[in-house]
Every structure is written in structure tokens, then in C-alpha cells.
């Protein structure tokens, strides 16, 4: 029986593992954290339909049951190819052998303190979108707003589309996340005004535009077209941001109770490390480069090494699931072709 090692236990890794197991391959899923779910496991509700993130993770976990060998708290130390097989050495000193590897090592969130002018880690009332999801989950939202100004700001493109931090690409999902979080904030704190500070609103997915309209129509979310240049803190602990309202053509200063930074995607440490270990190619955005951007999106340049999910660039959950399934098909095709050749 063919043997596949999937590295990374987020959405891409879980989905592809389950699918591969369903197809009758022997699958080992390696995850460095002590639990599965990746970033989505930290999330509260998802766009565009406000569905709890938990549902996705639970359903993916259920499908793994008994069919996939899951190794938690485990990291890959080295990978060696011999006789068409990969010997994967784990940090537990165990060595696994596989006929194919699937990298689903995903992304990290851009470290917001690198954008110092926004004051993350310096001011008390500057948080990231991920922090906000955690706050939603804990139900402590009222505790983090002071009630001074009754205003909350959401900054788009933090660490994305910014050559100053070396990330010139768009992280794709932050725009709609910003809209979603604005709605959730208005829902939870009806007396608060919520402002989205954006450069471009990229509502590319199905129903995203509806969500944008809902935010305006139903929730009165404010959209200011301008990128925040800097934030400071006033004596009361409010965050004061400076932005140009480019459509009004005037600079704008606004005090807020809370400033939320929509941090973008960067290749995860694991993605960079696995790419280095296997000497794979990276794109100019430092994510892994598929063998062909159109036709071989799940192939690496190495035979038997496949890619799925956000290790090849920012993706939504739905796209990640589609991508994971595509990778599974490619792996199956790879095994089938190999068998034919040998016979």
C-alpha cells in the first residue's frame, strides 16, 4: 500500500489526509503543535456567513478518525530521498518512509510589532484581527474597550502590499475579514462606530460583496479610503490614528477606543524551513513555488513532493479545501502513473 506523509495539521493538511485515507492510502499527518486545526482553530466565526470556525475544524477532525495516523507535537528534522521513497526523520528520532510527501505547512500571521508606527505591543488598545477573534471567543469584548470615544478602527493591509516590510503581495482574505469583524463588532457593541481604513476593498469571493453591502446598509460601518500612516496614544489611553481620507482629499485624525490590525499572511516558519530542507523553489513573495502556476499548482519541482494550502500563498478556507483536494488527486495520479511505468 502506498504511503503518504502530510506535514501540517491545519485545514489543508486535515482535508487532504482524510481524502487520501478515503482513497485507501496509508497516511501519517505530522503536526508540530499539540493539537490540530492550525490558524482556523483560533478563529471565532468565519466569513461570509458568520459560521462558527469550530464547525469546520470539528468536521475535519471527525473525518480523520481512525483512518489517519496523527502525530502531534512532532516536527520534521530532515528528509532524504532514496529509491523513489522519502525517509523523513522526526524530532522524536523516529524515521518514517513515504512514497509521497504533501507539504501543508501553511502561513504565519505577519508580526504586527514589525509595523511599529501602528503601536502594536506598545499601546494597550492596539490588537490584531487574531487577537480580536480570541476576544470574541472569550466573550470579553466589553473589557477591552474603554468607552471613551465609542469608536473602533480596523486597519487593512498591515504587513501586506507594503514594500517597507518586504511583503508586496495582497493577503487576499483580510479585506473581507475586516468587513466581517466590523459587522461582528457592531453586533456586539451597538453603540460603537466602526471604521474600516482601506486602500482597496477586494471583495473577490462569492457573497463577499453582499457582506460589504450588509456592513454599510444594516450595520452602518464606515469606510475610509486611506492607509493609516501612524498611531499614537493620548493621555486617556485612546489610540489616535492619522490617515488621509483620500476621497475627501483631507488628512484625518481620529481617536479610537480600539484599533484592530488586519495582519496579512507570511510563509510560516515551517514552510520556509521545509522548502530549505528540500531545496524547493520560492516565489518572489517567499511562499513555495509550484512547478507550474497554472497547470501544476500542487506539484513542487521534486518528484513525489506535493503542495497544498497556504504554503503556496494566501488563501481562504474554501480555497484551501479545494486546493487540498486537488493535491490529493495529483498524488493519486502520481501513484497510478508510477505503477504503470513499473509494470
Amino acid at each position: 500500500m502506498k504511503n503518504v506523509i502530510v506535514i501540517g495539521g491545519g485545514v489543508a493538511g486535515m482535508e487532504s489526509s482524510a481524502q487520501l485515507a478515503d482513497m485507501g492510502y496509508q497516511v501519517t499527518l505530522v503536526e508540530k503543535e499539540s493539537k490540530l486545526g492550525g490558524h482556523v482553530d483560533q478563529w471565532d466565526f468565519l466569513f461570509p456567513n458568520h459560521r462558527p470556525a469550530r464547525e469546520i475544524i470539528d468536521s475535519l477532525k471527525q473525518r480523520l478518525n481512525y483512518k489517519v495516523e496523527v502525530k502531534l507535537g512532532t516536527e520534521v528534522e530532515s528528509m532524504q530521498r532514496n529509491n523513489g521513497q522519502y525517509a523523513v526523520k522526526l524530532n522524536s528520532t523516529e524515521v518514517l518512509h513515504a512514497d509521497a510527501l504533501l507539504l501543508a505547512s501553511g502561513f504565519d500571521l505577519f508580526p504586527a510589532q514589525k509595523k511599529e508606527e501602528y503601536g502594536y505591543g506598545i499601546y494597550n488598545h492596539v490588537i490584531t484581527a487574531a487577537d480580536l477573534e480570541e476576544i470574541f471567543r472569550s466573550g470579553n469584548l466589553r473589557k477591552v474597550v474603554s468607552g471613551n470615544t465609542h469608536r473602533i478602527g480596523i486597519v487593512h493591509c498591515v504587513g501586506s502590499r507594503d514594500e517597507k516590510v518586504g511583503n508586496e503581495y495582497c493577503s487576499k482574505v483580510c479585506c473581507v475579514t475586516g468587513v466581517k469583524q466590523a459587522i461582528r463588532l457592531r453586533e456586539a457593541l451597538p453603540e460603537y462606530e466602526v471604521f474600516n481604513f482601506y486602500m482597496d476593498l477586494r471583495m473577490f469571493g462569492r457573497y463577499f460583496e453582499d457582506l460589504y453591502r450588509e456592513a454599510q446598509e444594516k450595520w452602518g460601518v464606515q469606510f475610509v479610503r486611506g492607509r493609516v500612516s501612524e498611531a499614537s496614544e493620548d493621555v486617556k489611553g485612546n489610540v489616535v490614528v492619522k490617515v488621509e481620507d483620500t476621497l475627501a482629499g483631507r488628512p484625518m485624525k481620529i481617536s479610537l477606543d480600539l484599533l484592530i490590525l488586519l495582519t496579512g499572511f507570511i510563509p510560516s516558519k515551517g514552510t520556509s524551513r521545509l522548502g530549505d530542507l528540500l531545496q524547493l523553489e520560492f516565489g518572489s513573495d517567499r511562499f513555495l513555488k509550484p512547478a507550474d502556476e497554472h497547470l501544476l499548482r500542487n506539484h513542487s519541482k521534486l518528484e513525489g513532493v506535493f503542495l497544498a494550502g497556504a504554503c503556496t500563498g494566501p488563501r481562504s478556507i474554501a480555497e484551501t479545501i479545494t486546493d487540498a483536494r486537488a493535491a490529493v488527486l495529483e498524488i493519486a495520479a502520481f501513484f497510478r502513473d508510477k505503477v504503470t511505468v513499473h509494470e
Binding site: D200, V228, E230, V243, E244, T246, P251
Partner: peptide
């Protein structure tokens, strides 16, 4: 330039 307005927002003269 993508007209984001960061320059104008941070401008000392503004």
C-alpha cells in the same frame, strides 16, 4: 503610487 494617502496622512506640513 497607488493613492493610499499614507504620505499625506503623515505629512508634517499638513
Amino acid at each position: 503610487c497607488i493613492q493610499c494617502g499614507s504620505c499625506a496622512a503623515s505629512c508634517s506640513a499638513a
